[in-house]
Simulated assay, not measured.
Amino acid sequence: MPDLVPHGAAALGISRDTAYSLARTDSLPVQVVRLGRCMKVRRAELITFLGIREDNGDGAWAATQTPLAERTTATTGK
Rank of each mutant, 00 (worst) to 15 (best):
L4T: 02
G8S: 02
A9E: 02
A9L: 00
A10D: 12
A11K: 04
G13I: 03
I14W: 01
I14A: 03
S15T: 11
S15G: 06
R16H: 07
T18I: 07
T18Y: 02
A19G: 06
Y20S: 04
Y20C: 08
Y20K: 07
S21V: 14
S21W: 11
L22H: 04
T25Y: 06
T25S: 11
D26Q: 05
D26A: 05
D26G: 06
S27R: 11
S27A: 14
P29I: 05
P29Y: 01
V30K: 00
V30D: 00
V30F: 00
Q31D: 03
V32Q: 03
V33N: 00
L35K: 03
L35R: 05
L35D: 02
L35Q: 05
L35W: 07
R37V: 13
C38V: 09
M39T: 03
M39G: 04
K40L: 02
K40M: 01
K40P: 09
R43Y: 05
R43P: 01
A44C: 09
L46M: 03
L46Q: 01
I47H: 04
I47T: 12
F49Y: 05
L50H: 05
E54M: 14
N56P: 11
G59W: 07
G59N: 05
G59Q: 11
A60V: 14
A60H: 10
A60R: 10
W61V: 14
W61Q: 13
W61C: 14
W61P: 15
W61M: 12
A62W: 04
A62Y: 09
A63Q: 11
A63I: 07
Q65E: 12
Q65R: 15
Q65Y: 11
Q65C: 12
T66R: 11
P67W: 06
P67Q: 09
T72F: 13
A74D: 01
T75D: 13
T75E: 15
G77E: 04
